[in-house]
Design a protein around this nucleic acid. Sequence first.
DNA 1: ACGTTGACGTCGC
DNA 2: CGCGACGCCAACG
Length: 108
Amino acid sequence: MSDNQNFFERVYEVARLIPYGRVTSYGAIAKYLGAARSARMVGWAMNNSSGKEVPAHRVVNRKGILTGKHHFEGTNLMQQLLENEGVEVIENQIQNFEKIYWDPAKEL
DNA sequence: ACGTTGACGTCGC
DNA sequence: CGCGACGCCAACG
């Protein structure tokens, strides 16, 4: 299944596996898929995931900053969704990022 | 058809 | 230890 799917679809699968109230980074997913240096593709995949059931709001960069919040509707929708899950976000910066960080390669 | 940008990350200095 | 540059691959202009 997964090995026959395209890179983008693999990203969607992992993104869907992100537990509630948890977040991960593009590089973590990319690395888990074997493309550690193609983190950008993960982001681009997320952009293509618009309309799909992929919790892209749970995916941030390695710093825990909502870099892609600008791609969501409104201006603070991404932050709203995260806060709705109990994730504290201040100035696009996730608080306790390392605490709620979910590494697929590690947890999965 | 070509050059540049882009939801990032790692390596180099 | 802090800042800069490069790399990945695809899409956009």
